[in-house]
């Protein structure tokens, strides 16, 4: 009897601080598997965000640094430009990338920096207790929108992939999800393709991962994955948003 699947080498043998059923752990594992399969562990430098994944340096078994809120693309730019032989990716949540760090995100993408961004979209500010984020859906109930997000007062959810697709600097943008095994396999393929894009020096790539946040959505983990499938991905359709890898 042989072991066919177990924790990848790029993850430390520690328990995570995430809530039960949270998608962050799944995404951490997919990233670690891709890093292992592409033999990047000794030359990877990741940039962790402020948010739920702030302790990512405790979980990944490669070098991880920490950036102020929203600034990972700017920090990653500096790391990549001074160490062009290293593999640099950022790991960010929706509040980090689409609210506080919107300026850094857009300018890093517009410059076509050769970095990879993993953007975990769970439609609220998870760490601070589930307040409305830029990506919160219309009508979604959060701590700061107890009657649902009203577009007249709160505006509309930002679709970051579509926004960045208009910039000439971006190379590869895809939106994936982790609510069932089939989509988890697709998400891994997308992350691996984005990592390969950076290795081939093709420029800026971003993978948006639609993830569940059961505790802050006031749902059980099973209700949360059902809500992702039935509601969330209807507003944020999955698929490749932009693929210019062959043209660069």
């Amino acid at each position: 009897m042989n072991k066919i699947l177990s924790k990848p080498e790029s993850l430390k043998d520690v328990s995570l601080s995430y809530c039960p059923g949270c998608g962050h752990g799944i995404i951490h594992r997919l990233i670690a598997e891709c890093v292992d399969e592409l033999h990047l562990r000794e030359k990877t430098i990741a940039v962790a965000p402020v948010g739920c994944a702030v302790f990512a340096y405790d979980y990944f078994n490669f070098d991880v640094t920490e950036a102020p809120h929203g600034r990972p693309p700017a920090v990653a730019t500096g790391i990549k430009r001074t160490n062009p032989d290293k593999f640099v990716f950022t790991y960010q949540g929706d509040g980090d990338i689409a609210a506080i760090g919107m300026s850094e995100t857009i300018h890093a993408a517009n410059r076509g920096e050769n970095i990879t961004v993993i953007f975990v979209n769970n439609a609220n500010y998870g760490m601070t207790g589930g307040q409305m984020a830029p990506t919160t859906l219309i009508g979604q109930i959060t701590q700061t929108t107890p009657f649902g997000r009203d577009p007249k007062r709160d505006g509309y959810p930002i679709k970051l992939c579509e926004l960045l697709a208009t910039l000439d600097g971006t190379t590869y943008l895809e939106r994936v999800s982790v609510f069932n095994p089939q989509n988890i396999i697709k998400a891994k393929k997308a992350i691996k393709k984005a990592f390969q894009c950076q290795i081939d020096e093709k420029g800026f790539s971003l993978i948006e991962v639609i993830s569940q946040c059961p505790v802050d959505w006031s749902m059980s983990p099973l209700e949360a994955i059902r809500w992702v499938e039935e509601v969330f991905i209807k507003s944020f359709p999955l698929g490749v948003i932009k693929d210019k890898i062959d043209e660069k």
Binding site: M1, L5, P20, R29
Partner: peptide
Amino acid sequence: PDFCIEVYK
């Protein structure tokens, strides 16, 4: 999500 499962065959 907590990578606590190992699969054997």
